[in-house]
Write a protein that binds this DNA or RNA. Structure first.
Lengths: 175, 175
DNA sequence: TTGGATATGTAAACATCGTCAACACCCGGA
DNA sequence: TCCGGGTGTTGACGATGTTTACATATCCAA
């Protein structure tokens, strides 16, 4: 529910909750644990957002999942940044890496199925790696405002994402 | 030259330089300006790294540039994170967005040429957007240690990058 | 040669931050 | 009844970014 950024202070959280600065330590080991918990909620929200669009023909599901991924990042920049922040020691929060799996699995499953039904060609694992990197990259560029010169439009995020995805899949798509 | 991370403190920099905590303010407006200057050096280093591999047939240049981009990120994580940090207000540092153009232009030029010579098919702008997003995404996944489950190998960064790029280009490549 | 501007540094202070230790309260079960 | 766990507070510590006032060094012009 709290879609903040990385610059969220522990004290600020306490302030907004109307408690003293030390109160959060009754619930979280430290600031990183607090942020980690928020990131965990983010992964669940992402999963929900992906599930919501995961329907139709496999090839369409791949497209929709990719677009939804980028749209989620644009709509919840704080969460997204937090979820993939390098400042969160992955090793210290196994729940985080666990929570990050379902979203990925949805994409992997859709691609696998698309390949199985002959709607995509190529190695499913390679395709998944590629698609994942692609949407992750678009998301980051949109969030950072970079790629503005590259024609990555921050207004029509969904359209831009769809276009990029199509460009990548055009060769792998069976006519 | 200083390939640090985002967690570089202004005081820490001063300490390492053997000066007082306030000394940096003689050279930079604030911490963000300092980091921005470091990021600027990073963009120049990236440009140099890309130029160094920008030779051969256009289609090979595209591949080499993409791989070099990811390898740069892996070899200079601090710089890379800094260069694309969301915490650096792009608008306040026009030199930064200016410095970020050359690396992109190299890729755009290689793709344009590859299309012109019939080694790639598709709209050059679309292809560039896609390729840029792709390598940017791989770089971030490698740096963050995410995508480990996705088979994004952090040991053989160059090999992984090449594979992802090939997967994306296979359809756009004229046999 | 002298004098003043310019560049660079320092020390001291301020507000803020993450964190911890000691203490206080409330409330449910023996 | 009491007492123990969950939750909160106060106050402090060290660290940070930043500002202000003050010092020094360097170098060019009168």
């Amino acid at each position: 529910m709290l879609d903040e950024g990385l610059d969220v202070g522990l004290r600020a959280v306490a302030r907004r909750a109307g408690v003293s600065p030390a109160a959060p330590y009754r619930h979280f080991a430290d600031k990183e644990a607090l942020l980690s918990a928020a990131a965990l909620e983010g992964f669940d929200a992402l999963r929900a957002a992906l599930v919501a669009v995961d329907e139709g023909a496999p090839i369409e599901r791949v497209r929709a999942l990719g677009v939804a991924y980028v749209v989620f990042a644009a709509e919840h920049p704080g969460w997204f940044r937090l979820m993939f922040s390098d400042q969160l020691e992955r090793a210290r929060h196994p729940a985080l890496v666990r929570a990050s799996r379902p979203p990925f699995s949805l994409l992997a499953a859709a691609i696998r199925e698309a390949v199985a039904r002959g709607q995509l060609r190529g190695d499913p694992r390679d395709l998944t790696r590629m698609a994942w990197s692609l949407v992750h990259g678009v998301a980051h560029l949109v969030l950072g405002g970079q790629g503005r010169g590259a024609g990555i439009d921050e207004e029509d995020v969904a359209g831009t994402a769809a276009r990029v995805i199509d460009t990548a899949l055009v060769g792998a798509t069976r006519a």
